[in-house]
Design a protein around this nucleic acid. Structure first.
Length: 582
RNA sequence: GGACCUGUGGUGCAGCUUGGAGUGCACGCCGGCCUGUCAAGCCGGAGGCCGCGGGUUCAAAUCCCGUCAGGUCCGCCA
C-alpha cells in the first residue's frame, strides 16, 4: 500500500513513482488545476500536488501516488525534511473521510486547547507532533533502559497484577474475586515484595518496566497508574545498584537528548536539607542556604537568636520590588514561618550597608557577617528565616525553588544522588518511629546500636535519584537478616503477630536462604516528562485521567450492572449519585 | 477533606472591575473566486442555554449564593 514514509522522501528519490499514506494536514487550493496537499504520516509531512480539484478535507485519510520531483526554484520549504521535493501529478485514493476535528492539531493554533477537550478526543490530540514526539521518546527511553540493563545481565521478569493487600502505605485499588466472593485482590503499588522473593529464588539480577497502581489523589506528576523501572540485585552494595541505575538513566538521557556528558553527583540527605532545604534539591541553580545561628547567639536580636537562622541570596533579587518582598513575607508565614527578614545589600567594603526592615537593629559587623556568609553582592536580596531547624529549612527551601523557577533561566539536566536518608522520619501518635522508606530497608551498620535508644538518628542504606528537583525514584539495600528485621519491627512498634499477618510470606521466605540484596525503582513517566521538557506527566501518557480520576474519553469509572455485582457477591451503597458532568 | 485559578459559537481569546439588545477579534466550518502555495490569499455566509441551578434588580455573560467540570497546590502518595 505504501512505498515510502513522508519524511523519508527527498532528492534521492527524484523520478520515482511512490505511494504515501496518511492524513490531510493542509489543503491549499489555487483554482481547479493546482491544489497542494500536505500529507502527514507517522514521520512527518510531504507536499502533494494535484491538478484536478476534488473534495478533500482536513484529516481525511489518503493514499497518494505520484512521481517525486524537485520543487521549482524559490518554492523549497527548508522547515521539513521533504521540503526540497513534492509528489507531482498525484492520484488520490480516499481511504477514510473525517468530520471536522474539534480543535486544531497543527500550525500556529496548535497546543492551547482546554485539556478537557483534548482528553475527550485524545485519539485526535495524539496526532499532534508534540505528543507523537513524546511517546516516541518514551519508547526510546524504555528501549535504552532495557538494553543497558540486559548488557549487565539483568533479566526481565513479570510479576502479578492481582496481588495481595499489604495494609500500609498507599491506598490500594481492590479487585473483587468471583471465585471467592467477598474477597479481594489488590493491584500492586509496586512489585517490591515480589522482586525480593525473586532474589530468594536466585534470579540475582531482575528488572521490570512495571505498571504500578496507587489510589491516591492525582497531581501534575502523579496518576493512579504509573510506570516504574523496577530493579533488584543480589550480592551487591548500594554503590553497585546506583551504578546500574546511573548507567541506564544516562543511556536513556543520551538517546532522547543527545547529552552524553552527564554528572551524577552524590550528596547526603543531611547536607541536602541543610544547604537546599529539600531532600530533592533542584541543582540547576546554586543559591544555597547558610546557617548563621552561631553568629547571633546572645546577640539580643530576638528574631535571630533562635535554634536555627538560615539565610540565602534570593534568586531574581533585581526583580524583587518592595511589594514583591512583602508578598514573600506573607508566603513565608503561610509556609509556617514566624516571619521573614529581607535585606538588600547596598555598597560594598567600607560603604557596605543594607536596606531592611530590621536594618537599624544590626551593627556593621553583623551586616558584614551576613553578607560575607551568603556571598551576597551589591543589589542582592538576602532572605533570612529563624526558628526550629526543620521549619527554617523547609520554608527557605520552598522559597528557593519558587524564586529560582520564577526568575532564573533554568536549563539543562541536573541529576543528583541523595544518600544516607534517615531510617525513620518522625514519631507517630503512639510515639513509634515512622519508617521513611519501607520496613525492609537495611539500616547503616554503624548506626544499628542506636535503633532503640536514638532511632531518629539511624541512617538507612537508602538512596534517591533526583533530576531538576523532581524525585525520580528511590532504592535501598534490604534486610536479609531476620534478627535485624525483628529489631526494625520492634522499633516501628510492629508486633510479631502483626508482622506475620502483613508480610508473613516474605519473612517465611527469608528463612529458606535469602541472599543480601538491594534495588531501586524510578518513575518512567517523570523521567520521560523531564527529558521531553513537559510540565506534567500527562503529556507523556497516551491516555491519562483527570485530577478527579475520570477518563474523559471512555467515561470511566462507570456503574456496572447488578448482575456483574452479583457475580462478585457485592451490592453498591452510595450517598451521592454519580456525577454526570454538565 | 481544604485553598486558589478557569468555564463566552467547533477552537483560542476579549467583554465581567463600574449591570443596559450577545457586541468584537483570530482560527476552523460552508459557498464562491483564484496556476506555486506551504499559517496560502480575496469575497460572502452559517453557527451562542455566556457550564448548570437559584437569588438580587425594571434589567445579569457581568453582582451574590450554591453546584458541576478542568487545572494548580495543601492534606495524601510506606
Amino acid at each position: 500500500m505504501r512505498t515510502d514514509y513522508a519524511a523519508g522522501l527527498d532528492m534521492k528519490d527524484l523520478g520515482r513513482t511512490v505511494s504515501a499514506c496518511g492524513w490531510v494536514q493542509s489543503v491549499r487550493e489555487h483554482g481547479d488545476h493546482l491544489v497542494f496537499i500536505d500529507l502527514r504520516d507517522a514521520t512527518g509531512t510531504v507536499q502533494c500536488v494535484i491538478t484536478e480539484r476534488m473534495e478533500l478535507h482536513l484529516e481525511w485519510v489518503l493514499r497518494v501516488t505520484g512521481v517525486v520531483r524537485a520543487r521549482p526554484v524559490g518554492t523549497v520549504n527548508a522547515a521539513i525534511p521533504s521540503g526540497e521535493i513534492e509528489i507531482a501529478d498525484a492520484v488520490v485514493e480516499i481511504l477514510s473521510q473525517a468530520q471536522p476535528i474539534p480543535f486544531a492539531i497543527s500550525g500556529h493554533r496548535d497546543g492551547n486547547t482546554d485539556e478537557l477537550v483534548r482528553l475527550k478526543y485524545r485519539f485526535v490530540d495524539l496526532r499532534r507532533s508534540r505528543l507523537q514526539r513524546n511517546l516516541r521518546a518514551r519508547a526510546q527511553i524504555n528501549s535504552a533502559i532495557r538494553s543497558s540493563l540486559e548488557e549487565s545481565g539483568f533479566l526481565e521478569i513479570e510479576t502479578p497484577l492481582l496481588w495481595t493487600p499489604t495494609p500500609e502505605g498507599a491506598r490500594e485499588f481492590a479487585v473483587p474475586s468471583r471465585l471467592q466472593p467477598g474477597k479481594f485482590y489488590v493491584l500492586p503499588q509496586s512489585p517490591q515484595i515480589a522482586k525480593q522473593l525473586l532474589m530468594v529464588s536466585g534470579f540475582d539480577r531482575y528488572y521490570q518496566i512495571a505498571r504500578c497502581m496507587r489510589d491516591e489523589d492525582l497531581r501534575s506528576d502523579r496518576q493512579f497508574e504509573f510506570t516504574q523501572l523496577d530493579l533488584e540485585a543480589s550480592f551487591v552494595t548500594q554503590q553497585d545498584v546506583r551504578n546500574f541505575i546511573t548507567k541506564a538513566v544516562a543511556n536513556a538521557t543520551a538517546v532522547v537528548t543527545g547529552e552524553t556528558n552527564l554528572d551524577f553527583p552524590t550528596i547526603t540527605h543531611r547536607e541536602a536539607i541543610s544547604r537546599y532545604g529539600s531532600d530533592k534539591p533542584d541543582l540547576r541553580f546554586d543559591h544555597s542556604i547558610v546557617e548563621l545561628s552561631e553568629s547571633f547567639k546572645g546577640s539580643g536580636i530576638r528574631a535571630f537568636d533562635q535554634p536555627s537562622l538560615g539565610a540565602f541570596v534570593a534568586p531574581g533579587s533585581a526583580q524583587l520590588t518592595r511589594s514583591k518582598l512583602d508578598e514573600l513575607v506573607d508566603r513565608a508565614k503561610s509556609l509556617g514561618a514566624a516571619g521573614l527578614v529581607w535585606m538588600r545589600v547596598k555598597g560594598q567594603g567600607e560603604t557596605l550597608s543594607v536596606d531592611s526592615p530590621i536594618g537599624k537593629l544590626l551593627d556593621g559587623g553583623q551586616v558584614a557577617t551576613i553578607v560575607e556568609a551568603t556571598s551576597a553582592k551589591e543589589g542582592d536580596v538576602v532572605l533570612l528565616v529563624s526558628g526550629e531547624f526543620g521549619l527554617v529549612r523547609s520554608v527557605l527551601g520552598t522559597l528557593r525553588v519558587e524564586l529560582g523557577r520564577r526568575y532564573l533561566e533554568l536549563s539543562g539536566l541536573k541529576y543528583l544522588w541523595v544518600i544516607d536518608f534517615p531510617m525513620f522520619e518522625g514519631l507517630d501518635e503512639q510515639g513509634n518511629p515512622i519508617a521513611a522508606h519501607h520496613p525492609f530497608t537495611m539500616p547503616n551498620p554503624d548506626d544499628i546500636d542506636m535503633m532503640q535508644s536514638e532511632p531518629l538518628s539511624v541512617r538507612a542504606q537508602s538512596y534517591d535519584l533526583v533530576l531538576n528537583g523532581w524525585e525520580l525514584g528511590s532504592g535501598s539495600i534490604r534486610i536479609n537478616d531476620p534478627t535485624v528485621q525483628a529489631g526494625v519491627f520492634t522499633a516501628l512498634g510492629i508486633s510479631d503477630e502483626e508482622a506475620e499477618a502483613r508480610f508473613g510470606f516474605l519473612l517465611n521466605a527469608f528463612n529458606y536462604g535469602a541472599p543480601p540484596h538491594g534495588g531501586f525503582a524510578f518513575g518512567i513517566d517523570r523521567l520521560a516528562a523531564l527529558l521531553c521538557g513537559e510540565e506534567t506527566i500527562r503529556e507523556v501518557i497516551a491516555f491519562p485521567k483527570t485530577q478527579s480520576g475520570m477518563d474523559m474519553m471512555t467515561g470511566a469509572p462507570k456503574a456496572v450492572s447488578n448482575s456483574i455485582l452479583g457475580s462478585y457477591g457485592l451490592t453498591v451503597k452510595v450517598d451521592k449519585p454519580m456525577s454526570t458532568g454538565s
